[in-house]
Design a protein around this nucleic acid. Structure first.
Lengths: 200, 200
DNA sequence: GCTAAAAGTTAAGATAGTTTAACTTCCTTT
DNA sequence: AAAGGAAGTTAAACTATCTTAACTTTTAGC
């Protein structure tokens, strides 16, 4: 049992960007796969080919890679209503650099490479939808580069806390440090410093 | 006089991603604008609304922004066959954060916001084309975040030199330093160090 | 060609962030 | 309830990078 219907929230998310009739939903549905990952499982692993674009209905995942020294670098978190996956690997169907790792039980809707290419042909609205989704992701990515250039570690942490207050609760601190590009020790000292200032 | 036809290289670039018949080219042409910017001119200025997606046929531009302290941060360079513009401003038709500044005389093909939305309706291939262009830009942007996290300043400079050897010649060093997220003085000392090592 | 402005260099002193390592707290599992 | 491991903290020593400032070289306008 336990597999509830994940398609309604998925279609709700589509409808934020494109108009979709009930008939079109029915047409798309056969190309979509519902799945539940347990805490600790991987949606995508480095060196495998990323076979799916994955929409998170509930739960939480992080995308990270291992550098040549074996150190983990978190490059993003994905939660409700976000898409995750190694887009480079998916688009070219070549081995992934990134791992997508569930930090909680995570329910998803997935589209395989073949099905997505098929859907693009079937309904041009899908092309528009992903153009818009990826466009937003790209804009956010540029803004992150800007922040990395012009903010201090402390300012980046404050921005992160303000932007994703839920994540501060749900994600271990050392992963947030990695996402911000600093060590866990330094993040700890930043938090300590902020806490001290609040006391005064 | 001087305005040569910029559309052929533009269509050649489109054809790398989508099939386009001669008739379709003719159909698109009225929505495209050719323009030449002189060295030093701005394709887009912060606080203005970015009205065009701009394809560079020849020349060179940089995208930069001014932080709250008035310091310039170069976020990208654009040369032949690249698209430039403040995508965030363009997509939402709100004031831009970025400036796009020509470092050389730059010949471009531009599409206005209204015309692009029209073209998306007119021919769904355009939606596909921009989905692919933006997808590549996003993948590159993610890779840049990865490099910023895991490489030293020196390694980032070496990667830049290897990837864009032409730009090393064409772009003032202080702009490259800014792009790499370091000071011009530090880049100077990195180059000095590399030159010394080569002599041994 | 001359001159001023822009770009690049050098070096000393300052600092944000890292490293190491020892310690504490908090979860899990049994 | 005890034990072991994962996560988080603290602090000292260290390093990559920045800041400042004086200097040199290159570029561009007259």
């Amino acid at each position: 049992m336990s597999k509830i219907a994940l398609l309604p929230p998925f279609f709700t998310s589509l409808r934020r960007y494109i108009d979709l009739s009930k008939e079109e939903e029915v047409e798309l549905a056969p190309y979509l796969k519902q799945r539940t990952y347990l805490k600790g499982q991987y949606i995508c692993q480095a060196d495998d080919i990323c076979r799916y674009q994955t929409f998170i209905v509930s739960g939480l995942a992080r995308t990270f890679y291992l550098d040549t020294g074996g150190v983990e670098h978190v490059i993003s978190f994905g939660m409700e209503n976000w898409w995750v996956g190694d887009l480079c690997s998916f688009a070219s169907q070549t081995p992934a650099d990134f791992n997508v790792h569930c930090l909680e039980k995570t329910e998803v809707v997935q589209i395989s490479y073949e099905n997505l290419e098929h859907l693009y042909q079937l309904n041009p609205k899908m092309e528009r939808f992903f153009r818009l989704i990826i466009q937003n992701a790209y804009i956010q990515s540029q803004k992150r580069i800007v922040r990395n250039h012009s903010l201090t570690a402390r300012e980046r942490f404050v921005h992160f806390s303000d932007t994703y207050p839920q994540l501060i609760q749900r994600v271990p601190q050392y992963m947030i440090a990695s996402y911000l590009g600093i060590t866990k020790e330094f993040l700890s000292s930043i938090r300590n410093q902020i806490a001290k200032e609040l006391r005064n």
